[in-house]
Amino acid sequence: MADVDSERWLVIDGRRWRRTDPSLPAELVAALKSHLGRGRSAVGAAKRRADDDAVAAARERVGLAKHGLGERGPYWWDEPEADRLARAEDALRRLDELDAG
């Protein structure tokens, strides 16, 4: 069971964090992680400006990226691979649409 747990969870300072779905294609993961990083950066910038609306919008982007990566939402290991891929592709499409304006 420890091997399965180590594939599903990353433990840092005693806290468990869900790992990225390993079945997702590398280029899809890279695109989602790029959005995730930019979203996290935007959260920090909005907090420094005390802009609550921008914080909320940036957190929404972070959440979308994390759902796409399988790090939030349904446990990826309980879902068919095709559903997981569709969720990731949908999240990336929605994030790209947010960038487009």
Rank of each mutant, 00 (worst) to 15 (best):
M1F: 06
E7L: 12
A46T: 05
A57Y: 11
R8Q: 15
A91H: 12
W17S: 07
D90F: 15
A100T: 10
L24D: 12
R93A: 14
D5P: 07
H67A: 10
V43G: 04
G101K: 14
E79H: 02
E60S: 02
R49N: 14
L28Y: 06
D51P: 00
V55M: 01
A54W: 01
R40A: 01
A65M: 04
G14Q: 12
G101F: 06
L92E: 07
R84Q: 12
A56S: 10
L85C: 04
P80M: 07
R94W: 10
W77I: 00
E71I: 08
A30L: 13
D78Q: 10
A100W: 05
G70V: 04
K47L: 12
R87C: 05
S41V: 01
A30P: 06
V29S: 13
R93E: 03
D96K: 07
S34G: 15
G63R: 12
Y75D: 13
A46H: 11
D53H: 09
L85A: 08
V29T: 15
D52T: 05
R59W: 06
D52Y: 02
A91T: 13
M1G: 04
D83S: 14
D99T: 04
A86T: 13
R40N: 04
L98E: 04
G39D: 04
L69V: 06
R18K: 15
R40I: 03
E89P: 03
D51Q: 01
L64D: 09
R18T: 11
D99P: 08
G44P: 06
V29F: 13
R40C: 01
L32Y: 11
K33P: 00
D96M: 08
D51C: 02
T20G: 05
E60T: 02
Y75C: 07
G70F: 00
A30R: 11
W17D: 05
A42N: 05
A82Y: 12
A45M: 14
A2C: 06
L85V: 11
K33W: 06
L85Q: 08
V62I: 15
W76C: 00
A100M: 09
R61F: 02
L85G: 03
A50H: 06
L24R: 14
A56N: 09
A54M: 02
D99S: 14
L92K: 13
R59V: 03
A82I: 10
D5V: 13
L69C: 05
A26P: 09
A31L: 14
E7P: 01
D78P: 09
R94V: 15
A45P: 06
D3L: 10
G14C: 09
D90N: 14
A65N: 03
R84P: 04
D5Y: 15
L24T: 14
V62P: 15
A30S: 14
R87F: 08
G68P: 02
E71L: 08
H67I: 03
V11K: 00
R15M: 11
I12Q: 11
A31F: 11
A100P: 03
V11R: 00
E79T: 06
D83R: 12
L85Y: 04
R61E: 02
A54V: 02
L95M: 08
A86H: 12
A2H: 07
G39H: 01
D83Q: 11
L32K: 07
L98C: 09
W17Y: 15
D3F: 07
L28V: 03
P74K: 12
G39N: 02
D21P: 01
P74W: 12
